[in-house]
């Protein structure tokens, strides 16, 4: 920040900057922002600048959260929502990886699949909700399918582009080492495409939460979306905000799990190495 450069005739002295700028550790510094925001929010609520019906104060949200948890509603809703996301993500991931491999490894697969996927990708998947309900019914299947769709496209597209980006020299090296076709896939193409695949997965998980919210707004009898809809009917802003926070935390948890996967699977790639 303040590397000072003094000019002395034709010479330049570059003053070294001490390493590590602030005394606070990085995670603490990163927490500072949200904590400050909460403080301002609480202050505004206490001062009476915001009515509790518009936006309840943080401390009352904790109370609401505790009530919901004690009544068992929260656990029940979480269970239903997580089940939907899990089924959708696993299905979408399996289809994305399966079709992605088929299309990137075989010429026939590429001709058959890739064009169709890229055409289908231009459809906004949210617009498919009415169709999915007609095809699969208003119960779980249409919700799972919507989440699976949201996961499928980013996984497929990133995997295919990852496989295509693998250095052809490495594939040749694998062949001169006597690797079979399957061996090349396992030891060269898949690990080479892993950074892209994980990027796709991270994006896919983000889409999955979005799809969950959309799906649960339509006629849910359980899950976080149901809790929100019900809260709207009885005018409980606090419950809505609590549920939104839970969505956010789940998204954050998903992001952390991807980060963990990256630090594990991409340790070879300096950028992700855990120091």
């Amino acid at each position: 920040m303040n590397t000072l450069l003094f000019r002395q005739g034709g010479m330049q002295i570059i003053v070294p900057r001490p390493q590590g700028r602030s005394g606070l550790p990085r995670p603490v510094r990163r927490l500072l922002g949200p904590v400050l925001l909460l403080a301002v929010w609480e202050g505004a609520a206490l001062a009476g600048w915001v009515s509790p019906d518009t936006l309840p104060a943080p401390h009352s949200l904790f109370t609401t959260c505790r009530e919901l948890a004690a009544g068992g509603e929260l656990a029940h809703a979480l269970e239903a929502s997580l089940a939907r996301v899990s089924i959708g993500v696993v299905t979408g991931l399996a289809c994305g990886v399966g079709l992605g491999l088929l299309s990137s490894l075989t010429a026939l697969g590429e001709d058959l699949i890739d064009g169709v996927v890229h055409m289908a990708r231009t459809l906004p998947w949210v617009g498919l909700i009415p169709l999915l309900i007609i095809w699969l019914g208003i119960e779980e299947a249409s919700k799972d399918a919507l989440i699976a769709l949201a996961v499928f496209f980013p996984v497929y597209i990133n995997l295919v582009s990852g496989v295509r980006q693998v250095d052809p020299g490495l594939i040749e090296a694998g062949r001169t080492l006597g690797l079979s076709r399957l061996g090349v896939v396992r030891h060269v193409l898949l690990p080479g495409a892993m950074p892209n695949l994980l990027t796709g997965l991270r994006y896919a998980l983000g889409s999955a939460w979005l799809a969950l919210v959309f799906a649960e707004q339509v006629n849910s009898l359980n899950g976080l979306g149901y809790l929100i809809n019900h809260a709207r009917e009885i005018y409980r802003t606090d419950i809505i905000v609590v549920c939104l926070f839970i969505y956010a935390f789940l998204g954050l948890a998903a992001d952390f799990s991807i980060r963990f996967l990256e630090s594990r699977l991409l340790a070879w790639n300096g950028a992700f190495a855990t120091s």
Binding site: D167, L170, A173, T176, P191, W268
Partner: peptide
């Protein structure tokens, strides 16, 4: 039984050195 080395080392970046060395052995 052939050994090949090119101008570029062409090591798999995702395998440790020793894993690269024994890759493909059966």
């Amino acid at each position: 039984r052939r050994g090949v080395a090119f101008q570029a080392p062409r090591l798999m970046p995702w395998k440790r050195v020793w894993e690269n060395v024994v890759l493909g052995l059966s």
